[in-house]
Nucleic acid binder design. Structure first.
Lengths: 208, 208
DNA sequence: CACTAGTGAGACATTTATGTATCATGTGCG
DNA sequence: CGCACATGATACATAAATGTCTCACTAGTG
């Protein structure tokens, strides 16, 4: 039982009870409270480690989607593919680390702010590039689009936990809503395919 | 200083620090901790009162938008107007009571569940009617659309608090994103007007 | 004035989570 | 075997929030 396994178990348990105590987390991880404290000096330390892990995942998602290259290029095709890949990866990250989104203390933590802001800036820059490339609407602030994606991811997470939607439908629902909106219109206009979604499926694998 | 004023102050303060203690809330409300306890038997009691108030507001928003009549009718025009009015009102409610959305304990409280579920059912029924009327896409579950709206409202709240967007732009951004999505396309297709939005402005007043 | 209701201030006990220290066990390795 | 190391169990001290109670003060009312 190393740090890594404990963190995995902690994530698992915190997703069912975001306010779980250290004792509960230790029990969920199958270790004693003492051992938990040997790996993490305190609750804040554990939360910080989890937060950093989520930021790692976020950074990986950005890199895996190739947003740096896509941002530099103006190729709509490249940007579009990167965008789909990124969003699909973000869905999973939000689902896994979503419990932290509610934690106000973490959002303001001085050790996390700079990292989170840098990742966000990269994302905003990428979204701005997507607007320039004609992939995304240019009449909405890129920063708002970034928040909107996160909001939809949180909504998807909630829906999943409540059993309202199937896990395999999430990418289609979220991407479909984000790109095309909820208003009815000519079906030929859809940006995201309604079908099984080969691209989405691949993006999921690539995101890892 | 009655219950009402204390609750208002509590909302105000909880929106800056969702984890505020009873002592802090009392101070923010300008009353002593003893007085706070005279009005609310405990933290749970206060939270419950606030939650009920938010559900009241939600119910009023539904009624004010006339979703019952709109659901019954199949008139796209009527449904469309009700939808805009409802969403605009929900934005404000989410902004004001958003601190509670993060509170897991409240979301599961046995006293609130039935009320929240009933309101949600009404909303889902209305959204389903909107799909039948051809106002909303029919290929996305109404329940998902309901969650998506909430997710976007939370995103808007966050953006507001971070100063990323202006308060007066929120309805346009949120409705624009929800209805039309973020993908670039022929500008003539937009469902939500880009202009100052007379309807939105009126809806705000009506929602109160 | 006398009375009452509401309030502020403070003391107190309780609960809960947390952080720390100690000791015994047990396992792997030299 | 003997040793180092990680762990579990346990006890202890601390901190913070909470709920309860008492007492004195004040404003308004009769």
């Amino acid at each position: 039982m190393g740090r890594s396994e404990i963190m995995t178990a902690a994530i698992r348990h915190l997703n069912t009870d975001p306010a779980a105590s250290m004792a509960e987390i230790a029990e969920a991880a199958g270790v004693s409270r003492a051992t938990l404290h040997r790996h993490f000096s305190g609750r804040e330390d554990l939360m910080l480690a989890l937060a950093h892990q989520s930021l790692d995942r976020w950074a990986e998602a950005q890199a895996g989607a190739g947003i740096a290259e896509a941002t530099a290029s103006a190729d709509p095709e490249l940007v579009g593919r990167a965008l789909h890949t990124l969003l699909t990866a973000l869905i999973e990250i939000a689902d896994e680390y979503g419990f932290g989104l509610a934690d106000h203390a973490m959002a303001v933590h001085p050790e996390l702010r700079p990292r989170a802001e840098e990742l966000e800036e990269r994302e905003v820059a990428f979204l701005t590039a997507a607007q320039r490339a004609g992939v995304l609407r240019a009449d909405l602030p890129a920063r708002w689009l970034s928040s909107a994606v996160l909001g939809l991811a949180v909504a998807a997470r909630e829906s999943l936990r409540r059993g309202d939607i199937a896990r395999r439908d999430v990418p289609r629902l979220l991407l479909g809503t984000f790109f095309d909106g909820a208003a009815a219109r000519d079906p030929g206009e859809r940006t995201v395919p309604d079908g099984p979604g080969e691209r989405t499926g691949n993006a999921r694998k690539e995101g890892r």
